[in-house]
Design a protein around this nucleic acid. Structure first.
Lengths: 263, 263
DNA sequence: ATCTTATTTATGGTCCTACAATTGACTTGT
DNA sequence: ACAAGTCAATTGTAGGACCATAAATAAGAT
């Protein structure tokens, strides 16, 4: 019957409808969150020191273990650095581009993102990066690119792994020349992963190496000339060419699997 | 004189040239790294359980505190979840898109990335997202978009904050329709930050709201029709329009400062 | 029989205490 | 002036004890 409703206390929470399961946050999480806000919201300039662990213990009433776990969270987030010894302690930091790249890598590897998906992202980012680089490159940017190009030229005929590595540096330098930190970080971590995949596939034949150098020269010229649209289209073509080469080398759905990449 | 070189042991390390400062990694870092590799490289399917803390203590010889700090690192990286209680423990997880977005947000806020830089990234990502969405959208994607559009229509005249929030959902749904996880995560976190900035600036006048709805309708039509290039160009125009509106509202170099965004 | 309710128990969560390792500043010696 | 040694504050690590949580199970009530 309709009124045959048990009135046990297991149903008492029907009064608390919509609350869902109450969550009991860990004390270290709470502290980490609190410190994170303080760090982000204001005060704390870059090198500033947080209270020592034992000070945090006394101010928060938590145990030192919990405090340390909170600090470890912040450290993993890249918000603080920690040094032992007198005058050491935890100091406020900025999450580095490498740090962000490492988390992006974790995301990608944890989900077995396909290589073609990676190329799609690259195809979205790198032309935009090149266009901005053409508009904003400084003399330092250009000379850095020239130096890398010189090393690539040398390595192309002598040291294959150096060639691939400098290739990544090349892309990184262009991303730096865009003078957009976020775009830089995105583009760098994506091309870094492409680099790993390339090493595995060893697709860099002499012919490919030659074409890469040629493409680089044309892209550099566009950036040097400050022609954003030209740089964009040339990079776009380059990435697409790379994609089609890779497509002929690799089975279409190969995924980026886990490798070293120690942060 | 040239041979007046002190031979104290402070110079003894000249023999070790190029080593730089030797680093002494923390035991928790070592363990975290080791577990991370095991998780990524192979074994460990998604829900699988890691050894219990006390088992790790006995197998590694470390203290429980160090083990817990290592696990906390992995947790922050999104690689594991932890549940207390019997049959609880540490289980392998995938870093979620939200997780990645949270780290991206930290990077952005920690560096005070300018709003215009954010727009540049959006301008790189969203047109590409829309193009892919047009090619790959499923019926579910389309109906989700329709539902959101309906809620936006309602909220536009009734609830401003709901309007802004659903606006984010709209962009998220399109990103989901691209069926590229990484692109999705990138685009979502960027537009999420734009949302925060928009709330602060309260630029959403009735006129703007009207134009947003119109733009959405045109973009949806392109995606529904499966016309990638049309979707791309329409989104590109939309983002640029948004940028110029924002430019007239905001002083050019305002930066995205820290706000809540609790993961 | 069926549904509560209590118990059990393996697990993470927290606290405490003590000591080791580190490292920059300070002191001392030459 | 400078090299070496000492000091002190701080993080790093260990070990132990107990609490809180939660799923499986057993006991009990209807």
């Amino acid at each position: 019957m309709a009124n045959d409703i048990p009135l046990t206390n297991s149903n008492a929470e029907s009064m608390l409808d919509g609350l869902g399961r109450i969550k009991v946050p860990k004390s270290s999480d709470v502290l980490a969150e609190r410190l994170k806000r303080e760090i982000l919201s204001d005060g704390y300039t870059l090198g500033a020191s947080l209270p020592t662990e034992r000070e945090l213990v006394s101010t928060t009433g938590l145990s030192r273990g919990s405090v340390r776990e909170a600090l470890r969270i912040l450290e993993t987030q890249g918000l603080v650095n920690t040094r032992a010894g007198r005058y050491g302690g935890t100091t406020v930091a900025q999450p580095s581009a490498d740090h962000l790249a490492s988390h992006i890598n974790l995301y990608i590897k944890g989900r077995s993102v396909t290589l073609s998906a990676l190329i799609e992202v690259r195809l979205a980012l790198e032309p935009a990066v090149a266009a901005l680089a053409a508009e904003r490159r400084t003399e330092e940017d250009l000379s850095a690119l020239r130096a890398i190009a010189k090393r690539i030229d040398w390595a192309a005929d002598n040291d294959l792994s150096a060639f691939l590595e400098e290739n990544v540096n090349w892309h990184d330098a262009i991303a730096a020349a865009s003078h957009n930190d976020l775009l830089h970080a995105f583009a760098t971590s994506v091309s870094g992963l492409m680099f790993e995949a390339s090493q595995i596939k060893e697709f860099a034949s002499a012919d490919v190496r030659q074409r890469v150098r040629y493409a680089h020269a044309r892209i550099f010229a566009a950036i040097e000339a400050g022609d954003a649209e030209l740089a964009r289209s040339r990079v776009e073509r380059d990435v697409q060419a790379y994609a089609s080469i890779l497509a002929t080398t690799v089975a279409g759905t190969s995924s980026v699997t886990a490798v070293d990449q120690s942060r």
